[in-house]
C-alpha cells in the first residue's frame, strides 16, 4: 500500500526535503522580514508587528544615521575591494611567474589568514592597534614615524579596518586568480612571444583580458562579503568612535538587538538586501556582456 503510494508520487516526494528546507530556511525568513519591514514592531515602543505601511522607509530617508551608515558601508567596501583586487592579482602573477622550489608551500601559507576566525583576528588586531601599548605604534616609534590613532580616530578608523580585511582576504583573490591562470591556454602566450611582445604588453593585452572573468568572479565574491562585513567591525570598534565606522550591518544590528525596533531594523535589512542583490546582478550582467 505504502509502496504504491511512493511509486505514484516519486516525482515530488524525492525533491520534497530540499524544497521544504529552502522554503523554511530561506523563503520564509525573507518573507517574514519583508512583512516586518512594513510593521511598527518595537519592544521599546510597545508596538506589536501590525501593518503600518511604508512608514519605516519614509523615516529611513530622514535618518541621518542611516545615510552615514550607507556612506561608511560603501567607503569600506570600495577601499577594501580596490586594494584586495590589486594586491591579490599582483600576488598571483608574482607567484605564477616562475617555477621555483617551495611554490606549493607559498600557496598553502596564503591560506592561513583565511582559516583564522574573524573574531579572533579582530581581537589580535585590536591589541596591535592599541595606541599606547600596541605593537604597531611601538614599531612606528622605533623607526621614527609619528604614532597613529588607528581605530581610535574617526578619520583613520575605516582605513584601519580595511587593513585588517585586506590582511585576511587578499589571499582569497590570489588563490582564485592562481586557479584562473592555471586554466589559461598556452597558445596566445606563445603567439605573443613570437610576435615579440614585451612582458608588460603580454600582461595588459593577453593575460589580464583572459583573466577578466575570473577576476570578476573573485571581485563579486569579495564584494558580497565586504559589504556584509560584521565580525571584524563589531569586534574591534562596535561602530565607533562615535558613529565613524557604523556600517549598515552594524546599524541594523543596533536597531534590532539594542533598540529592539524590529520593524525598522527589518526595513534596513530589506534595503541592504536590495543593494547586495542589485550590485550582484549588475556584475553578473556585465560579465555576460564581457564574455561575448
Amino acid at each position: 500500500m505504502i509502496t504504491r503510494f511512493f511509486d505514484r508520487h516519486q516525482r515530488w516526494l524525492f525533491p520534497a526535503p530540499a524544497v521544504i528546507f529552502i522554503v523554511v530556511m530561506m523563503i520564509f525568513p525573507l518573507g517574514f522580514t519583508l512583512w516586518n519591514s512594513f510593521s511598527g514592531w518595537s519592544l521599546t515602543a510597545g508596538r506589536p508587528n501590525t501593518f503600518i505601511g511604508p512608514q519605516n522607509y519614509v523615516d529611513m530617508m530622514r535618518d541621518a544615521r542611516f545615510w552615514n551608515a550607507v556612506l561608511n558601508t560603501f567607503y569600506f567596501t570600495a577601499l577594501a575591494m580596490v586594494i584586495e583586487l590589486a594586491l591579490g592579482v599582483a600576488m598571483a602573477l608574482l607567484i605564477d611567474a616562475k617555477d621555483y622550489p617551495g611554490k606549493r608551500v607559498v600557496t598553502s601559507l596564503l591560506l592561513l589568514p583565511m582559516m583564522a576566525t574573524p573574531v579572533a583576528v579582530a581581537m589580535v588586531w585590536l591589541l596591535m592597534f592599541e595606541p599606547t601599548a600596541g605593537v604597531i605604534n611601538f614599531v612606528f616609534g622605533q623607526i621614527g614615524l609619528p604614532k597613529q590613532l588607528w581605530i581610535a580616530g574617526s578619520s583613520s578608523v575605516i582605513p584601519s579596518l580595511v587593513l585588517v580585511d585586506v590582511w585576511e582576504w587578499t589571499p582569497l583573490i590570489t588563490l582564485i586568480v592562481l586557479a584562473g591562470l592555471a586554466g589559461l591556454p598556452s597558445e596566445p602566450f606563445e603567439a605573443a612571444r613570437v610576435d615579440g611582445a614585451s612582458y608588460w604588453q603580454t600582461l595588459w593585452r593577453v593575460t589580464l583580458p583572459m583573466l577578466l572573468p575570473t577576476i570578476s568572479v573573485a571581485g563579486l565574491l569579495r564584494f558580497i562579503d565586504c559589504i556584509k562585513t560584521f565580525d571584524i567591525i563589531y569586534g574591534m570598534t562596535g561602530g565607533g568612535p562615535g558613529f565613524s565606522s557604523e556600517t549598515l550591518n552594524i546599524y541594523t544590528y543596533n536597531q534590532a538587538f539594542y533598540y529592539f525596533n524590529f520593524g525598522y531594523a527589518s526595513s534596513l535589512l530589506v534595503i541592504f538586501f536590495t543593494i547586495v542583490t542589485g550590485v550582484s546582478l549588475l556584475v553578473a550582467y556585465s560579465r555576460r556582456r564581457l564574455e561575448v
Binding site: P131, T132, K147, A152, G240
Partner: peptide, 21 residues
C-alpha cells in the same frame, strides 16, 4: 587623557590607571 580614549569603556580605562599611566 590617553590616546585612543574614544575606544575605552571601563576595562580599558582601568587598565591604563592600574598600569600607573
Amino acid at each position: 587623557g590617553p590616546p585612543g580614549v574614544l575606544n575605552m569603556s571601563w576595562p580599558q580605562a582601568v587598565a591604563i590607571f592600574a598600569q600607573g599611566n
